[in-house]
Design a protein around this nucleic acid. Structure first.
Lengths: 264, 264
DNA sequence: GAGTTTTGTTCAATATATGCGAACATATAA
DNA sequence: TTATATGTTCGCATATATTGAACAAAACTC
């Protein structure tokens, strides 16, 4: 059958799509052997083999003690991609500064294909130490249960928000996670009125956050800046006045930095 | 002709190799349009187009204001790859600590396909501020003109070192860069005797470094740990005694951490 | 803001690269 | 050692990638 029944929309190269799946499967499985991969993707061993060989030849996969694993080249490429990102380039210093000032976690987040990408994060020195950073950083990257994510959603065209919800849904995480789209839209309305977003233990029990959007002069969201920490610290006036102000301030500075760099 | 004249060694999927080239070309060009890419890779516009479309479908490329660029998904994948790396997992904390202690730059470096990969780096607070970090971090990643790189080469089997030299050569950077392979092999001998490597302005004028290998109990090199800073600071007893000791100490701790995690 | 050039996208046809299974090779287990 | 699983190579049939040409949409130009 030509171009398998998939309703892929545009015509695509199946071999390349398979190669992409191979990469993502190696990520899922933390590396794999030929047979394992073939089973997982439901292809023949020979096909799995030639895919892996090709990816090795191109440096995206390495064969390490008998297993095929994603290569560090991907890390190098990824670093390049981040370094090209304007939000990262012009926001990094402010993140460092804000983390210093607040002592909490500070993140710069952006959105791609409806998912959150953590461009840069720093742990201020009064924020939870002792709580170990899990090795798998929570790259679970939904937008609806973080302050950064909601700050982005709030300033995205409603149409796009609906698309994202259809695509990714609103999975729950804690008792406070917003899992109903009507509730979410009300929340986004509140965020727009307020100018920044709260996360009140919606992702992790005991963790709160404040997130402000980063926008272009004509109102497009580029991403967001957030501060997060234990609910015991982010509370009272600090949570309602001081921190929001500081986050907004830093966000404004980043916005200015970006605009400056766009003038020639 | 089946499998074009290329002497690729093993049989590979040309479509996938082309897709890889597309990705790397987008990196080289900092993004490109369809025609530009087609010209660069000497393929038809339609082929370039379907490749790009496929990579977009798979999330590795995004179309941003009319140009195709590498997607942040690659950054996310790259972060995952790094997080899986034992050297990073068990070395990061030591890097932070050593940067604190010395006040200089500290790097953890490893090798892949004969090139250096900077797994993690931190700038201690007394190291050059004012000198701006260039936006393109010097991911030029040759092994022969850095302390980290030479520390790795010194403990790699000579056969592999020769392969690497054949593959990548010994391009010069400063007046001090070693560009002759015989000189390099002598230097590697010295490093083995000493137990650590020096970089005396071989990469950047005015910059020195000290690098120690990170090895498994049976002598395989996993990577290296290095401290670097201005030649005006890295000099005298500090350069010859104190810092080497501190680097070696930290390196040993990392080695132990890794071994611990391999038991059971 | 019409005309012109460049760039992006779609399509049908054909040659060819891809995916498969079977056979062989190598590694691991019993 | 034999047995079992895993990895690798090969030839073949057929699905599929590449192409050029035609069309569409931008982007300049004046």
């Amino acid at each position: 059958m030509p171009q398998t029944g998939d309703k892929d929309g545009p015509r695509t190269l199946q071999t390349v799509s398979m190669a992409s799946q191979v990469l993502m499967t190696l990520k899922e499985l933390d590396g794999a052997g030929v047979t394992e991969l073939a089973t997982e993707l439901d292809i023949s061993k020979s096909t799995a083999h030639i895919h892996l060989t090709t990816l090795v030849e191109n440096g995206f996969v390495v064969k390490q003690n008998g297993r095929y694993e994603l290569a560090l080249k991907l890390f190098a490429v990824g670093e390049y991609v981040r370094s090209q990102n304007p939000l990262y380039r012009h926001g990094k210093d402010q993140v460092d500064e804000l983390a210093d000032k607040t002592g909490q976690y500070v993140h710069i987040v952006t959105e791609e294909n409806g998912r959150a990408i953590n461009l840069y994060q720093v742990k201020g020195d009064t924020s939870v130490s002792g709580t170990y950073q899990t090795t798998k950083p929570q790259q679970r990257d939904y937008l609806h249960y973080t302050a950064s994510g909601k700050a982005i959603l709030a300033y995205l065209p409603e149409q796009r928000v609906r698309e994202i919800l259809n695509r990714h849904g609103l999975p729950g995480r804690t008792a406070n996670t917003i899992t109903d789209s009507e509730v979410l839209f009300e929340e986004l309305e509140n965020i727009r009125e307020r100018g920044y977003a709260y996360n009140d233990e919606e992702e992790i029990e005991g963790f709160r956050a404040i997130g402000a959007p980063l926008q272009t002069p004509d109102g497009d969201v580029l991403g967001s800046l957030s501060v997060s920490g234990p609910a015991s610290v982010l509370q009272g006036e600090r949570f309602e006045e001081t921190l929001p102000e500081e986050v907004i301030n830093s966000a404004n500075i980043i916005e200015v930095n970006i605009n400056m760099s766009n003038r020639s």
